[in-house]
C-alpha cells in the first residue's frame, strides 16, 4: 500500500507545523507536502505531474489568504488542469464569511472548513479530515 500524500498550502508556517504534527501523530504513513503560497504549490504540483505523476498528493488543504497567489486563484489554475484538477481540495481558512465559502465552491473546492480556534478544535478537525478524506473516501487513483 503506497503512502497517503497530503499537501498543505498555507503562508502561516505555524499552522503548517501544527497540522503536519497532528496528522503525523494520527497517521504514521502520511506523507506531507507543503507550499507557502498558491504559486509555489502550483509549481510543485506541475513538477510532480511532469516527472512523477504517481507522487502527486491525494488531498490538498488550502488556505485562502496568501501572498503571490491566493487560494481562490490557485483553485482556478489547479482545477483547470486535467491531471491536477482531479485532486480534491479542502479549503481550510480562518474566514467564516459566506462570501468566501460561496466563492470557494464556485471555484470547485471540494470542501470548506474553518481553521480551529483552539487546541480541542484542532484535534477534532484533523480527526475529521483523516477519517473522512483519508480513510473513508475513495479518491481517484493516479
Amino acid at each position: 500500500m503506497r503512502p497517503i500524500r497530503l499537501m498543505i498550502v498555507d503562508d502561516n508556517q505555524d499552522d503548517i507545523a501544527l497540522l503536519t504534527e497532528s496528522f503525523s501523530r494520527r497517521n504514521a504513513s502520511l506523507e506531507c507536502l507543503t507550499a507557502s503560497d498558491g504559486m509555489e504549490a502550483i509549481e510543485k504540483l506541475r513538477d510532480r505531474r511532469d516527472t512523477a505523476p504517481s507522487a502527486l498528493p491525494d488531498l490538498i488543504l488550502l488556505d485562502l489568504n496568501m501572498p503571490r497567489m491566493d487560494g481562490r486563484e490557485f483553485l482556478t489554475v489547479a482545477k483547470a488542469d486535467n491531471r491536477i484538477g482531479r485532486i480534491p481540495v479542502v479549503v481550510l481558512t480562518s474566514s467564516a464569511s459566506d462570501a468566501d465559502v460561496l466563492r470557494a465552491y464556485q471555484a470547485h473546492a471540494n470542501g470548506y472548513l474553518v481553521k480551529p480556534s483552539d487546541l480541542d478544535e484542532l484535534h477534532q478537525i484533523v480527526e475529521l479530515i483523516d477519517h473522512y478524506w483519508l480513510r473513508a473516501s475513495s479518491l481517484p487513483q493516479s
Binding site: S117, L119, D120
Partner: peptide, 10 residues
Amino acid sequence: LRMIRIYLQK
C-alpha cells in the same frame, strides 16, 4: 491570536 491560544494550550 489563534496561534497564541492553541500553542498556549499545547
